[in-house]
Amino acid sequence: MLVEIKYFGMLAEITGCSSEQLNVSIKKIGEIKELVLDKYPDLRNKDFRMAQNHELVSDATMITGQEIAILPPFAGG
């Protein structure tokens, strides 16, 4: 399954890209997180949350094959 991963703010500085497509055979958001952390070990000591299709999700959420975003702490206003 092809999923698009988006990175924002300080996390995009670490990954060096704002989005990438990953071909995965996994089922849960937590597994995407592990895959991304293996690819970018510097993310391990960063605080972030994950969203799928524009909603925050937990590690146990099933991947639906669309857009997944990795979001640093919010700083609006």
Partner: peptide, 10 residues
Amino acid sequence: MKAEAPVFGK
């Protein structure tokens, strides 16, 4: 909005 909107500030 401050808690829930994904806005980032450098």
